[in-house]
Amino acid sequence: MGLLIPIVLVLISPSLGWAPPLPLRTSPTTSQTETPPPASEEEPITATDEEIRKPLEEKVARATLPAAHTPAKHGETDGESWVAQRTMVEDYCGWGWIKKEKESWRQARWIALEGTREVCPLPHTYLPRPEDDKNYQYRFYGSFAPYRAYEPQADVWVDVFILKGFMSLGPAKEEIRRSPPAQASSGVNRFAERGANVR
């Protein structure tokens, strides 16, 4: 009986799923490395083309850690101030709403925000992504620019606030559900019934 067990095992072994036998040396074999790569029919890129079109590596300095956060205070934080709430509208130029301390949010103005180099960058540049401070409030120091910004999707002019400093006020109690301005940037074409400007 003791001799029968190894004999039975040898007989049933092919059905146990062992690895198939290795091919014979004479079997035809293919090797990836031996196959030459197909010749490209496209013209080779010249060194000049390569140089001109080569995109540069992104070098935008922006916080990447999840723990990154906007500083509590930055830039010049003295003088007149405004309360501002970051609001993002899809495909619409601008930063959010801004108002004086005693005004209601219904009186707030929609602004495009312009930073001042080496004095105060925009608050969201400290965050991994621009939308990471959505619905956060700030106290802004600076002034309204004498010029406006053009919003190309909605074809409107919006106010520009030049930021000199800010203080973080934390998350807002609620989102501002108000549409930004939407009036057309230009009136009736007064040249439609006039001759060309040839003078």
Partner: peptide
């Protein structure tokens, strides 16, 4: 400014009268 352009740096259709056909 993000997603827009500043007024002094935009040639708007209303500015075209500053370009003379002559």
């Amino acid at each position: 400014v993000d997603g827009g352009a500043l007024e002094p740096l935009v040639v708007h259709v209303d500015d075209l009268e500053k370009i003379s056909g002559s």
